[in-house]
């Protein structure tokens, strides 16, 4: 049994256009990996494919989570088995309070017939909200409805904390965040770093990686990982831009 999230030679299409063209990488437990790439390189597609979105078709390759075939599982099953995706654009669910939503998600993880301990649940949720500097009023508000961009992202991190995943993918969590919100979100993620958990942080900009310092950086261009390095690779990208990398690849090809 391997203790990692492994993507092997993944090909995926949307509306018959191939977006992922043989993507491979491995995130061992305990590590934070970053994927950086220009617009249209397939970053968000990768996140959606991992979560099981129906619009994306995997044509070949596979993903395993601690040895289990992720692609064989339903969307909700992946979640209950420990896979979490923090959305780039979190959805609004009118009329469903944040607390009820989280509670339903936690309840879904219990064996049939077993009831969630409501008191302990609220205590835990309040503690985590405090950690993220979220006002208590957010428990009663409808999920993401009328939230600012920063509040939505903070809410994603709250959900992640409450669901305690084994592997978490953060899809452009930094987009739409001001620097203060970015720090809070990063703090939340850093607090969750543990030998028992792996992170894949998808981002366009290096800025987020100042606060969530990755162990490994992958560069995604045109549906493939074209370069892998340590955290300095992100700085290098910031300086030379994606064009620099592309030229470099062309030169070595």
């Amino acid at each position: 049994m391997s203790d990692n999230l492994t993507i092997s030679n993944l090909h995926a299409t949307v509306d018959e256009t191939e977006i992922l063209k043989g993507l491979s990488l491995t995130v061992p437990k305990g590590e934070v990996h970053a994927i950086m790439g220009p617009n249209g390189s397939g970053k968000s597609t990768l996140a959606k494919v991992m979560a099981g979105h129906e619009d994306y078709e995997v044509t070949s390759g596979g993903i395993t989570m601690d040895g289990a075939e992720l692609l064989d599982m339903d969307i909700d099953e992946r979640s209950r088995e420990g896979f979490f995706l923090a959305f780039q654009y979190p959805l609004e669910i009118p009329g469903v309070s944040n607390a009820n939503f989280l509670r339903a998600a936690r309840q879904a993880r219990l064996p049939k017939g077993e009831e969630i301990d409501a008191v302990a649940f609220y205590k835990e949720m309040y503690a985590k909200m405090d950690e993220l500097g979220m006002d208590r009023k957010f428990t009663g508000r409808s999920v993401n409805e009328g939230f600012s961009g920063g509040e939505k992202k903070r809410n994603e991190v709250l959900q992640m904390m409450m669901l305690d995943p084994t592997y978490a993918v953060l899809d452009e969590t930094d987009s739409g965040l001001d620097i203060d919100a970015l720090k809070v979100v990063a703090q939340g993620v850093n607090a969750m770093r543990s030998p028992d958990r792996g992170f894949l942080v998808i981002t366009h900009y290096q800025r987020l990686l100042d606060y969530i310092v990755p162990d490994v950086v992958h560069v995604l261009v045109d549906g493939r990982i074209v370069k892998t390095g340590d955290k300095d690779l992100a700085l290098e990208l910031e300086e030379n831009g994606y064009d620099g990398i592309k030229e470099e690849i062309l030169a070595t090809a």
Partner: peptide, 18 residues
């Protein structure tokens, strides 16, 4: 919306009923 809720572990039916 259903995809989002399912990603949090709810079945399709649970997501709809919510």
């Amino acid at each position: 919306q259903i995809f989002y809720m399912q990603q949090r572990g709810l079945s399709e039916g649970e997501a709809m009923s919510l």
